[in-house]
Amino acid sequence: MSEQESLYEQIGGEAAVNAAVDIFYRKVLGDARINTFFEDVDMEKQAAKQKAFLTMAFGGPHNYTGLDMRKGHAHLVSRGLNDSHVDAVIEDLGATLRELGVKEELIAQVAAIAESTRNDVLGR
């Protein structure tokens, strides 16, 4: 291959995000460790936000900054969001990709991207 494909392209781009969003969101809602953070919000809007999350984690095009991540999760941090919750989200993300047959080596890269936002998400 002469041109290096981006991680996002290797995973399958927007189509992969669309395939992953329902699976991932179902996992999150079924995960007792974190589902309280996703209660009582408009499910449709929530699913769209999950899509934003997945696009970001897959290395796709987005305009979020670290500051956006801080602001976007501040209300959750004040409700007790901590490292264990980030771990759970990254775990659910990995399980979703495995279900879709994505290679382990790509899953590790996705996890690394999510990992890199940890401090911003937790407002540290």
Binding site: V17, A48, K51, T55
Partner: peptide, 10 residues
């Protein structure tokens, strides 16, 4: 708005 890239639907 939020993502400005067509994904969050805000």
């Amino acid at each position: 708005f939020s993502c400005r890239s067509g994904v969050c639907q805000t």
